[in-house]
């Protein structure tokens, strides 16, 4: 008898800790004109998109120079690292308000698959970083035909 077996994407999985995500949503919802949205515990905020071939990760990084961001993928771990540089006040300047974050950031994501590290691509547009992480060839879903004896 012929049978088809699928070695496919693993079970559904959550990329972010749900509590962190909820906290971020709450901060946004609760922000009012009097109280600017609070500094979130996690930086940068991310969106993740999934397809059989891989993932796309978007990160909000306003004002960050593309050259100040480092993306590394090791097996099934993706790391974003970089720095947010804000204007250093000159001698004749007075800082009236400073809410924008500055400094170094680092965030690591556990991927649901081993990535094809050579094919990871990143683009930067209007302060949003987009990283496309393809699944490694060996882990792509494939159908295996079982021959009859």
């Amino acid at each position: 008898m012929m049978e088809l077996m699928t070695i496919g994407p693993r079970s559904p999985w959550t990329i972010f800790d749900e509590l962190e995500s909820l906290q971020a949503d709450m901060n946004r919802l609760l922000s009012t004109p009097e109280a600017p949205r609070q500094t979130r515990a996690v930086y940068p905020p991310l969106n993740a998109w999934s397809a059989p071939d891989g993932l796309i990760i978007d990160a909000e990084l306003p004002g960050v120079e593309p050259s100040d961001v480092e993306i590394s993928v090791d097996g099934d771990e993706l790391e974003l690292r970089g720095k947010v540089t804000t204007h250093e006040p000159a001698e004749n300047e007075v800082v009236l308000r400073r809410e924008r974050p500055s400094g170094e950031f680092q965030r690591t994501l556990q991927l649901p698959f081993r990535a094809n590290t050579d094919a990871v691509k990143a683009t930067f547009k209007n302060g949003i970083l987009r990283v496309a992480v393809p699944r490694s060839e060996e882990e792509k879903p494939r159908k295996i035909a079982i021959e009859s004896a």
């Binding site: 600017p36 949205r37 007075v94």
Partner: peptide, 11 residues
Amino acid sequence: YVPRVDIRETP
């Protein structure tokens, strides 16, 4: 969203 802001004053 209330965006974060920096404000500086020069002469």
